[in-house]
Design a protein around this nucleic acid. Structure first.
Lengths: 329, 329
DNA sequence: ATGAAAGCGCTAACAT
DNA sequence: ATGTTAGCGCTTTCAT
């Protein structure tokens, strides 16, 4: 791979002139520019990002941290981030952390080392301490999951309210025994959604029964299947289920198969996220729709502002309840 | 962010010595090492990958190109790549190309510019010309989709054979009218799977009817829904459908809803890929299982060998037919 | 065992 | 309009 030096020699000019041509500086004569451009072509030269970044302390690369690409929830968010980034001449790199702090650390280092200009983290288990530390001197935005009372700017929705509304919808349909399939409450969103669930029940004087609250380890389908099977083994079975993620709700739907129960007649189900698959199930899934694309766009814009040195404020976006077959009893 | 110079000053040694400590060189006295390590801690110093990479022409970063993260097919492959990479002290960066050549080009440049040491491409629409050119001087491996007769090493399965076996399974169940939901035949795998489909039909003297071969634009669920609706509008409806991707097959399953037809009694369906969803549908989906994790591991190993300068040979892995409810008529 | 200095590829300030 | 040169942060050769 040729370097700028060789191009300069071939064109019979200085490296500075080559650099000027590369950066479209005005002060180069057409004749010289042509010579340089020819040399570039002949040598098949491409400028080294490494040298350039080292010099400029800028990479125009953004990092996007996500726990796992297997959850379709992230797909649309990433589209939003990607489109916004590209519109601003940035590129994004997706980093799957598996919620592993060590792996996270590697990516944090890429930021510290100027290999990327900023980071959007969607990892709920991110090491708060390290992240806050990083955010002190580097552009960081949290997306979806965030740090309550923390100093890092975030974009998210009101999970408590969304859960409250979802459960209220179930209550209005006449359900009095409503179960919750929650994920691990170490996640903020899990605590918030539980809180919304309880607020709705309390408001209608319905009992909050621990046996109707199931906690899953992960958000995979299989966790939802498992959760539903447990609920169906109870003496007093719920007549409705609110799952904090579509993947869990879809698993729950599967878990009902073979039990003889009918959704929604015997059991109503609501999910959360409105992933594309939630419209493919049979019955289709009622769910809370997060504005995922917009969330991505917003996060990317916030990050780019932050890179420019501007102050950014956290944002809470609106959600919607999408009513489909699984609650049309 | 402190640099090596400041660490050296603080520790009262030269930058060379700091570098030695950083790289665990043997020839540093314990006393000096301690001084340096203290300085590093006090200054919160982290070595710059940029400076290091520029000097070493090595980044220990691998690029993984994929058209879209929305297809769950890639999930397990990426796990395989990631684990293998980490076991060899490499990190991976996921690059979503949206099958956009311009975007691809950006990532190719990262390779040329030594920002990453090699690339695994899973993008079927990748620009063959540019890729082959890149592969002449940089480590490149193709995964899943490949270039027939090309010079770039690949890891894949025998799509023709898999399709042949899938269709034969349908024939053995007594089906004589078998439709194909294919993707765009600009993709090699699409041509291969069609070829396997036709081979099976011919072998049993069944007619190949153009109206039973539907081509979709993308691999989204919705494309499968659409395809199935078209097939159900035909005067002579098929009794079985082979879809070249699980996402399409799942969409097809959805497209049948409301038609009054029963799967598998009236219509058998086979998909391809064995994505995790395929076991969540109702009925569960018969499908061809690609060894995705192994594919990822193999691709990563090949790439790492290639980076080391070793010659690598292309690999064709085995597949399996997973029989589930959608063909248990 | 340690230090001085060159150089990886590039940009920009300064000089002409 | 173009050239000279310093320097971004690091590693490594060559001295000592």
């Amino acid at each position: 791979m040729a370097n700028i030096q060789q191009v300069a020699e071939k064109a019979g000019v200085s490296v500075a002139t080559v650099s000027r041509v590369l950066n479209h500086a005005a002060s180069v004569s057409t004749k010289t520019r042509l010579k340089v451009e020819n040399a570039i072509k002949e040598l098949n030269y491409e400028p080294s990002m490494l040298g350039r970044n080292l010099r400029n302390s800028e990479s125009r690369l953004l990092l996007v941290l996500l726990p796992s690409i297997s959850n379709p929830f992230y797909t649309e968010i990433i589209n939003g981030i990607q489109n916004t980034a590209i519109a601003n001449s940035y590129n994004i790199l997706l980093c799957e952390t598996d919620s592993n702090p060590q792996r996270e650390n590697i990516y944090f280092n890429m930021i510290k080392n100027k290999l990327a200009d900023g980071v959007i983290s969607m990892d709920p288990t991110v090491n708060r301490q390290k992240l806050t530390e990083l955010a002190e001197s580097h552009p960081v935005i949290l997306c979806s999951e965030y740090d309550e009372g923390g100093s890092v700017p975030f974009v998210t929705i009101d999970s408590e309210l969304a859960a409250y509304q979802a459960v209220k919808h179930l209550i209005r349909l006449g359900n009095k025994k409503i179960a919750l399939i929650n994920s691990d409450e170490k996640f903020l969103y899990a605590r918030q959604r539980r809180s919304g669930y309880e607020r709705a029940l309390k408001e209608f004087d319905l009992p909050i029964r621990e046996e109707w609250i199931y906690h899953t380890r992960d958000l995979e389908f299989q966790n939802g299947v498992q959760a539903m099977r447990m609920l169906l083994e109870l003496e007093e079975k719920p007549t409705a289920v609110f799952a904090v993620s579509d993947t869990l709700a879809i698993g729950a739907l599967k878990g009902i198969n073979g039990s003889g129960l009918h959704v929604p007649n015997d059991l109503a189900i609501i999910g959360f996220d409105n992933i594309s698959f939630s419209n493919m199930t049979n019955p289709t899934l009622t769910t809370v729709s997060q504005p995922m694309y917009k969330m991505g766009v917003t996060a990317a814009n916030m990050l780019i502002m932050s890179i420019k040195g501007e102050q950014v404020e956290s944002v809470v976006l609106d959600h919607d309840l999408i009513i489909r077959e699984s609650t049309m009893g």
